[in-house]
Computed example of a mutant assay.
Amino acid sequence: MGTLSTFPPNPASTRHAAIAPAILYFGTPVAVLSTLDAAGHPNLAPNSSVWWLGQTAVVGIAARSRTGRNLVESGEVVINLPSTAEVDAVDRLALTTGRSPVSPRKARAGYRFVADKFREAGVRPLPAETVAPPRIAEFPVHVEGRVRAVHPLGGAAGPDTADLLAVEVAVTRVHVLESVRMPGFANRVDPQRWRPLLMSFQRFFGLGAEAMPSRLASIDEEWYRG
């Protein structure tokens, strides 16, 4: 029977410490969400709380934000994914809100109301194909989708009383620039060409070189479609 390996005590610099961080953004892709309000006015909102499973996206959003309300009311969204090349457009949208008046809490943090987010970011709207909100022409990836379910977080009874929502989005179409497609494949993104913009603890980063070959990459991508 094997025995556990023993190591000398860790020096202080490598010792774990219990902490209570206010945010847990250890590194997630950045998205800009396009939505429409009840009057059909578009809003853009940077977001770094999106994750994917199969053909479903789950978006974490503040329930009382303009985008949160739009998702609940209209049920449609475009998840625009920037590369590191579009970081300036994303940053121009930081500290802006599509909701007026600005809440006192956000005002104290420096947020201001902006009606035309496309102009603010210096980007152009592009019609979507399966949903009403527009895409961002300059961004390399657009994921169109419809809200399938809204999950209030924190034990709230419904979206109206929740602070945060997890919004389940059924993907209806994906658009990518030709420059990030994998040569020889109709429906694949080339991870060597796609350089997503990442956020880690409020700061922007990009991907480095591939760390090492992945055993998971030995599975053909089409296996996941089933």
Rank of each mutant, 00 (worst) to 15 (best):
F7I: 05
A12W: 08
S13F: 03
F26I: 11
A31V: 12
A39Q: 14
G40P: 13
A45K: 01
T56C: 14
G60F: 00
R64D: 15
R64L: 12
S65W: 05
N70G: 02
V72M: 10
S74E: 11
E76A: 08
I79A: 14
T84V: 12
A85I: 01
D88P: 02
A89M: 06
G98F: 08
S103Y: 04
S103W: 04
R105K: 07
R105I: 01
F113A: 10
A115W: 01
D116K: 00
A121H: 01
L126R: 07
E129C: 03
R135H: 00
I136P: 01
P140H: 03
E144I: 09
E144L: 13
V147G: 09
V147M: 11
P159R: 07
T161V: 14
T161P: 04
L165Y: 06
A166N: 12
E178Q: 08
R181P: 06
R181K: 15
P183V: 06
A186R: 11
R188A: 11
Q192G: 06
W194G: 00
R195E: 12
L197T: 02
S200M: 12
S200Q: 10
F201E: 13
Q202K: 10
R203N: 06
R203A: 09
F204L: 14
A209R: 15
P213I: 01
I219Q: 10
E222A: 15
